[in-house]
């Protein structure tokens, strides 16, 4: 398997996870969708975000081993977070769609 696929999978999973956590916050949800999230939605997004973070960690651990996996996971988290935060004000409307695309892409690559 090419080395690029697991990298992309981990990066997309981290991006989906962080986007989810970001969109669970009132300020950013309003920034993207123009209104605050309902309580149940915010809760669901938080649960999804934390679960995806765990999933990404598991994936990194499985792929790079449990010595290097967590180091890689932190690296992917930082890279994905930087991309998310610095894209958010410039392309806020896209954030929701990008998160869904990352989730779909990450899951497909993970199980491919």
């Amino acid at each position: 398997m090419s080395v690029a696929l697991p990298v992309l999978a981990a990066l997309l999973l981290c991006h989906a996870a962080l986007s989810s956590l970001c969109l669970a916050m009132d300020r950013h949800h309003a920034q993207v969708f123009g209104r605050k999230p309902a309580a149940w939605l915010a809760h669901a997004l938080r649960v999804a975000g934390w679960s995806l973070l765990g999933l990404a960690l598991g994936y990194c651990g499985r792929h790079w081993g449990w010595a290097i996996g967590p180091v890689a996971w932190f690296g992917f988290l930082s890279a994905a977070a930087l991309a998310l935060v610095f894209a958010l004000p410039y392309a806020s409307r896209l954030t929701g769609r990008l998160a869904v695309a990352s989730l779909a892409g990450g899951l497909v690559l993970m199980f491919s």
Binding site: V3, V7, W64, I68, A72, G75, F76, S78, A79
Partner: peptide
């Protein structure tokens, strides 16, 4: 360790 993927992550961070 970890080859180029890890090097790039270090580079970005």
């Amino acid at each position: 360790f970890g080859g180029y993927p890890l090097k790039w992550l270090y580079f970005i961070s």
